[in-house]
């Protein structure tokens, strides 16, 4: 079971698929930041907030509410996968992902989930807000899983470093340490997510074994890399008293004394109907502040500094 996680783009890569470059991000690290959402992740968390960034391949996003029924896409599709009458209908089985429809759609109802960016193109975008970053803000690499794009990051990070831009990485921890280590040492802050420590539970919630994640977390701590450990608290999934205690114990053993609890939000569910996927909505309500405070106490009792913010 303890195999190395696969890594895409191992060689220095010219381009990467990026779902979104979100400017004025204020929840992904300190200050004002620009967050880059890379496409592709090895985990399949049941509550993934960015389901459009899960697959490594590009895919078609269809926002029906934007459709003006102009019919341009129907004529453009080489595979006859789109039929427009009273309602737009996309036959996802016939779609071959050529994105001809997205080029003609006037209203952005049809869009590719991601676009290819070269390092230069991405840096241009990231520099646009450099005057707003201030001493604390900067760039956050997120996804999907950014630490799988080691080839691209090998070229990107030195440029950002040279421009003296604060770089944070949001990671699920499932990556190959040997390849990631030199890159992580170039970033200013790692936001390291831990979903569960009990292996069976982790497997069930994310589809992967958590041994590499635990190892990588310990590695990050030992390497003295500046980090913030975060845990999404998903009601009924990973928030049992026992699991929270187990996480606290594990973190304490690893030498960590601070944790950022992320309350579960269900906004991601509205994205599902735009994608072609088998993911199902969870139907769980968002977590209230009081409940979150209760969860925080479990960590508090173990001497943790607990941060939580919506």
């Amino acid at each position: 079971m303890n195999q190395k996680p696969e890594t895409r783009n191992q060689k220095p890569a010219a381009t990467a698929l990026i779902c979104d470059i979100q400017r004025f991000s204020i929840h992904d690290g300190p200050g004002i930041r620009t967050t880059v959402f890379f496409k592709g992740c090895n985990l399949r968390c049941l509550w993934c907030q960015n389901p459009e960034a899960m697959k490594f391949e590009n895919e078609l996003v269809f926002s029906e509410e934007r459709c003006i029924l102009c019919g341009e896409c129907q004529s453009a599709c080489p595979n006859g996968a789109i039929i427009i009458n009273d309602h737009p209908h996309i036959n996802r089985e016939s779609c071959k992902g050529q994105f001809a429809c997205t080029l003609v759609c006037p209203s952005k109802a049809l869009e590719p989930a991601a676009k290819q960016y070269s390092v230069t193109e991405l840096v241009t975008e990231l520099l646009k807000d450099v005057d707003y970053y201030g001493p604390e803000g900067g760039v956050t690499l997120s996804g999907g899983e950014p630490m799988l794009k080691t080839g691209f990051l090998t070229k990107l990070l030195p440029v950002l470093k040279e421009k003296k831009i604060h770089v944070a990485v949001e990671t699920c921890g499932y990556f190959d340490w040997e390849k990631a280590e030199p890159l992580l040492k170039m970033v200013n802050l790692v936001l390291f997510d831990i979903k569960a420590v009990t292996p069976e539970l982790h497997q069930r919630l994310t589809g992967k074994d958590n041994t590499p994640i635990k190892n990588n977390l310990v590695n990050v701590i030992r390497a003295g890399i500046s980090r913030q450990i975060r845990m999404p608290v998903v009601p009924g999934m990973n928030d049992s008293e026992e699991e929270l205690e187990a996480v606290a114990l594990f973190l304490k053993d690893a030498g960590e004394s601070s944790v950022h609890l992320l309350p579960y939000h269900r906004m991601w569910e509205s994205k599902l109907k735009k994608l072609h996927d088998t993911i199902k909505p969870l139907g769980i309500a968002s977590l209230g502040e009081e409940e979150l405070i209760k969860k925080a106490e479990t960590f508090g009792r173990k001497g943790f500094e607990v941060i939580f913010q919506a």
């Binding site: 200050g31 004002i32 005057d131 707003y132 970053y133 201030g134 803000g137 913010q309």
Partner: peptide, 13 residues
């Protein structure tokens, strides 16, 4: 919680 800092960064920028 960093309301002032964000405002300040936007205006200064």
């Amino acid at each position: 919680k960093q309301g002032f800092e964000l405002f300040d960064l936007l205006v200064n920028g």
